[in-house]
Amino acid sequence: MPFHLSPVSWLLVLSVLVQLVYAAYYFWPFALRRPAETAEPAPQHEQAHPVSIIVAARNALEQLRYLMPELLQQDYAQFEVVLIDDRSDDDTGLYTQQLTQYYPNVRLVTIGSTPEGIAPKKYALTLGIKVARYPYLLFTDADCQPSSNQWLRHMARGFDGGADIVLGYGPYAEAEGLLNKLVRFETLLTGLQYLSFAERGQPYMGVGRNLAYTKATFMATKGFASHIRRLSGDDDLLVQDAVQLGRRASVVTAAEAQTISQAPDSWGQWWRQKRRHMSAGSRYRFSDRVRIGTFILANGLFYVGTLVAFVVPEPEWVALAAVWGLRTSTVVATYAQASRRLHDRQPLWLFPVLDAGYFFAYSLLTASLVLNRNPSRWK
């Protein structure tokens, strides 16, 4: 009897094949690679790579009380901290002014108002970059914590070899609850995508809580000029513009080079955050949109095809079980290896559930952006 599969089964097979191609070409080479990421002291080298750490903050006094000591204790030969007080109503400015009296490498930029029609965070970062003394810029957020006092050293070493951009990883702290697990899984998956693509020579984004680039790169892109009115994109759209100009990116994944953040503690907060981040995607280069979109679409069609397969007459259970078994084992193994490379261990047994939940949420987020293109404002 000739071998026959229904259109739904062929859809499932095709979607899994696409995912296997991504796993074989991008994800597995990245996940299995073990780069030498030592950070032995090299004072002469570090003197040649002085760094300005730039932090934009609004009403973030409590977060800064934890962050600033960690930044000031970084084990690096020459650096400064540029803190931008963006229209704060609390004592952020006063706290930083007190630090400047004791630490000459702390500088304060105070913003009283933002010009109409300009994204506030991009305006704040622009002013901070303009006053930065050093040619190498390292960015994080006020609610982050470097994972070690070697964070700056590892990230700065990413500029070795002539890189213009250094892409780091910023996981969220582990906490109780399903939301935290979903947020951490989504962060792992996003990190796996943009870091593995970059290692294949196809960088398309970075995350502002752990990102570095040269001041010359910022000047070459004319700063955030091409997207200055968009609320999001101070990180990924800057990388997009820089890559378009031929700037090179490197990847740093050492455990000591991470910044840890507290995950959103409510579904509404996470939803607004994701809408803001995803709204920048329409400005990506066409090739990047195709590359990312194909991966997302293949995963989405897999779940749609599975739902359809259960309701059609005489489901092909053997084919469905085989496809599901192949995909599930590949997904779990890939994410497990990626979590080791990124030093972000997560519960393996939940990966299939979180994967399905993420792509369901992604579909809803995409639909919401199509229906309402106004993302939430930053702070």
Score class of each variant (00 low, 15 high):
T253S: 15
T253D: 12
A254T: 01
A254P: 03
A255E: 15
A255C: 06
E256L: 07
A257C: 12
Q258L: 14
Q258W: 05
T259K: 09
T259Y: 08
T259M: 13
S261T: 09
S261Y: 03
S261F: 09
Q262E: 08
A263F: 00
P264T: 12
P264W: 03
D265W: 00
D265E: 15
D265V: 10
S266T: 15
S266F: 01
S266L: 14
S266A: 08
W267V: 14
W267K: 01
W267G: 04
G268T: 13
G268L: 15
G268Q: 14
G268I: 10
Q269F: 07
W271D: 13
W271R: 05
W271V: 02
W271S: 10
W271Y: 11
W271K: 04
R272W: 10
R272Y: 04
Q273K: 08
K274H: 09
K274L: 09
K274C: 01
R275H: 11
R275E: 04
R276F: 03
R276D: 01
R276E: 00
R276L: 13
R276Y: 01
H277E: 12
H277M: 08
M278G: 07
A280D: 02
G281P: 03
S282T: 09
S282A: 10
R283H: 10
R283T: 02
R283C: 11
Y284T: 01
Y284C: 02
Y284S: 00
Y284W: 04
Y284D: 03
R285T: 06
F286W: 14
F286A: 05
F286S: 00
F286I: 05
F286T: 09
F286D: 01
F286V: 05
S287R: 11
D288Q: 09
R289Y: 08
V290K: 01
V290R: 03
V290I: 15
R291V: 07
R291Q: 12
R291A: 14
I292W: 02
G293N: 04
G293S: 03
G293W: 06
T294E: 00
T294R: 08
F295A: 07
F295T: 00
I296A: 10
L297I: 04
L297V: 10
A298Y: 10
A298F: 10
A298E: 00
N299M: 03
N299C: 08
N299I: 07
G300T: 12
L301D: 05
Y303S: 01
G305R: 04
G305S: 05
T306F: 13
L307G: 11
V308D: 10
A309P: 06
A309R: 08
F310E: 13
F310I: 06
F310M: 12
F310H: 04
F310G: 12
V311I: 15
V311T: 14
V311H: 10
E314D: 11
E314H: 06
P315V: 07
W317T: 12
W317P: 00
V318T: 13
V318I: 11
V318S: 07
V318R: 12
A319E: 15
A319V: 11
L320N: 10
A322E: 11
V323E: 02
W324Y: 11
W324M: 08
W324S: 11
W324N: 00
W324K: 07
G325D: 12
G325L: 02
G325A: 05
L326Q: 00
L326I: 13
L326W: 04
L326Y: 09
L326E: 06
L326M: 09
R327T: 07
